[in-house]
Design a protein around this nucleic acid. Structure first.
Lengths: 124, 124
DNA sequence: CCGTATCCTAAAAGATACTG
DNA sequence: CAGTATCTTTTAGGATACGG
């Protein structure tokens, strides 16, 4: 609905979006995607490294998010080894990298609010 | 999890957040909040104007979002008249206004993607 | 080590009807 | 005009166990 004209929309891969935020949110919405992308901003990380960096996420959710980010073309997956233990690396694509400035703005607003109105606490 | 140190978090109004995106998303996440805030960026709008600008939203969802945005301090509600038909105006607070640059970055990324990879279609 | 498979709950959203 | 009230569906997310 942010487009000029009342009855226009965007169609991308057979999905219809009514405004720019719809489009962006379909890529970074939900509880975990921003966090995963943000951690990948400086380079590749392994599955277990992401899990360690984001203790609250379950392996199932991490797996789902990584698969979704892959399908959206935001990250690549590289696996090494024929048998367990495997080594799997995740890395931002150029497309995924283009989202980092967006996420940076989002996170900065939140951090500023946290600093002004919140308190820093210790958690498990 | 974006904070330095593994076991720190922000607490705002008794809710715990693990990173800046968590905080911001709690204010603008979901399907409709960005859209409503974005439409209010230039001034006040009435309930029916918002409904007309966002045809896909149901009155119930619009009502819920407006109430939530109010409770979060992002918008104010001004009502006029003692009996129906009422006139109700919604307007961004300064706090709500501080989110507009964030939403602008989000929407711009989406629009650029729509222009590059999508097609503009006509919808009902 | 890097995931899947099930099962489950809770939250978000939609359809429709109605009201001061 | 500006909402509520119900009911239903959909989606996201979590707990736990297991597997190549």
């Amino acid at each position: 609905m942010i487009l000029e004209g009342k009855h226009k929309a965007y169609k991308i891969n057979d999905r219809v979006y009514h405004c720019g935020t719809d489009i962006t949110m379909s890529y970074i919405g939900g509880k975990w995607k921003c966090v995963v992308l943000w951690y990948l901003r400086h380079g590749t990380l392994r599955f277990s490294e992401l899990k360690r960096l984001i203790p609250d996420i379950t392996e199932k959710m991490l797996s789902i998010q990584l698969k979704s980010l892959q399908e959206d073309g935001l990250i690549t997956r590289l696996s090494f080894g024929k048998r367990a233990p495997f080594r799997v690396q995740y890395e931002l694509t150029d497309f995924g990298l283009s989202l980092i400035p967006v996420i940076e703005v989002i996170t900065n607003w939140g951090i500023e609010l946290g600093n002004n109105k919140g308190e820093i606490i210790e958690v498990l």
